[in-house]
Every structure is written in structure tokens, then in C-alpha cells.
Simulated scan of single mutants.
Amino acid sequence: MTEVLLGSILSALATGLGAIPILFLKGSITHRWRDILLAFTAGIMMTAAMRGLIPEALQAGGIFEVIAGLFLGVLILTMLEKTIPHIDLEHSRVGIQFDEKALLIIAAITLHNIPEGLSVGVSYASEAQETGNLIAFAIGLQNAPEGFLVALFLINQNIGRLKAFIIATLTGAIEIVASLLGYYLTSFIEVLVPYGLSFAAGAMLFIIYKELIPESHGDGNERIATYSFIVGIAFMFILLETF
């Protein structure tokens, strides 16, 4: 219990950690750098899903459970996307322009953090403790640039830097609740473990391919974003082999 609580808190607070530079940043950030960050985090999440969640799900269950969980994760994310208003950022090569409905976008970002929290909790419920640490670490790495981009968005909406930092940090807090929920469900009903791990992998893969990669390819930065995606994968593999 202590492990999952600590892991979920650290991965969630990484959102605030990533937002810290916004307190000192002068000016804005170009779409080129934003796309590089998005693609890099996509690579990190891809490695976590393929190297951690799916192999562990196969070991805990079988191919049927893995396929069922993957499709369930995609289905739930699809339903969430249709239910939660999703407003894309306007693409511009010079800077980042955002829709005026700031509250709606922040609510959408917060709710989209739920599957990430579930991923952490379910991973800690598996027999291999290192899987939980791996996913918590991967989600934390993914949350850092996300927190930076959310805070940057808020500043572009004429919100003060300190307030933007606090709000960006709070958007990741829901992951703690989701993580504990995922942990308790799969801990008390062991048969759910392979389904839960595969569900988390499916949700992460959906986010990668539906959100992160298209967003990183929307402004003519496809090549550099692709390089960044591969670097993210390599970076995660290096960390896995090192630690």
C-alpha cells in the first residue's frame, strides 16, 4: 500500500515539477519545441506499455485477457473522448495560440489523466513489484512536459505564473485517486490483474497514437518529432537497463 501511494504521488507531482520552468520562462515556446516534447513523451509511454504492461499481462493471464483488456482500454478512452469536449490547440509555426474556453480544456486534461493513474495502480497490484515502479516512473516522465505545456497554456490565457503553476500541478492530482482505485480493484479481485494491465496498455497506446503523435505532427515538424519519439524510446530503454 505504501509503495502504490508513494509511486502515484510522485508520478502525479511530476506534473508540477515540469511546470516549474514556467515561473522563470520569458516569452513563449515555439511549436517546434512543443512537438519535440510531445513526441518524446510518446516514446516514453510506448516503451512503458510494450516493455512493462503487456509482458506482465501475458505472464499474469494469457492472450485472451491481453486482447480483451487492450480493446477495453481503447473503448473506454473512445467513450471518454466523445463525452468530454476535446478542444485541439490551434497550430501556428510562430507560437502557440489557444481556444478561449480555458476551463473546458483544463477539465478535459484533468479527466484524461485518469487512465494514467489507473495504469500506475494496476501495475502495483501485479506480482512483479518492479512493474509498478516502471509504470510510475514512465508516467512521471510523461507528466513533466505535460505540466509545462498546461502551465504555458494558462499563461497565454493571461493567468499569473504562480497560479498557472498551481493549477497545472492540481491537474495531475486526480491520478492519485485513480491509482488507488485501480490498485484496490485488482488487488481484491486477482483475476482482474491481466485485464487491468492490458487495459492500462490499451489506454496508453490510444493516447499515444490519437493524441500525442498527431499533435506533434501538426505543424510541419514531422521529421524532428519522429526523431524525438525514437529518442524517447531509446532513453526509456537505457533507464530500464541501467536501473
Score class of each variant (00 low, 15 high):
6 L>A: 07
9 I>H: 11
11 S>R: 10
12 A>R: 09
27 G>R: 10
27 G>N: 11
28 S>A: 12
36 I>F: 13
40 F>H: 00
43 G>T: 06
43 G>L: 03
44 I>S: 08
47 T>A: 12
47 T>D: 10
48 A>M: 09
48 A>N: 02
51 R>H: 11
57 A>V: 01
58 L>W: 05
63 I>D: 08
64 F>A: 00
66 V>T: 02
67 I>G: 03
70 L>P: 00
75 L>D: 03
75 L>N: 08
75 L>P: 02
76 I>H: 03
79 M>P: 02
81 E>P: 04
87 I>S: 06
88 D>W: 06
93 R>L: 02
95 G>M: 08
98 F>I: 10
99 D>I: 00
103 L>K: 12
105 I>R: 15
106 I>R: 13
108 A>V: 09
108 A>S: 13
108 A>F: 12
111 L>Y: 11
113 N>E: 14
117 G>T: 13
125 A>L: 10
126 S>G: 06
132 G>L: 03
133 N>Y: 15
133 N>S: 13
138 A>K: 09
139 I>N: 05
140 G>E: 08
140 G>F: 06
144 A>M: 15
144 A>W: 10
148 F>N: 11
151 A>N: 12
155 I>W: 05
161 R>E: 10
161 R>F: 07
166 I>T: 15
169 T>S: 15
170 L>C: 14
171 T>I: 15
172 G>V: 09
175 E>Q: 08
184 Y>V: 09
185 L>R: 10
186 T>Y: 05
188 F>T: 08
191 V>L: 09
193 V>T: 08
196 G>C: 04
197 L>V: 11
202 G>L: 00
202 G>R: 00
210 K>E: 14
213 I>K: 06
217 H>R: 02
218 G>K: 01
221 N>E: 07
221 N>A: 01
224 I>R: 02
225 A>K: 01
226 T>A: 03
226 T>W: 02
231 V>E: 04
232 G>I: 04
237 F>Q: 11
238 I>G: 15
240 L>Q: 12
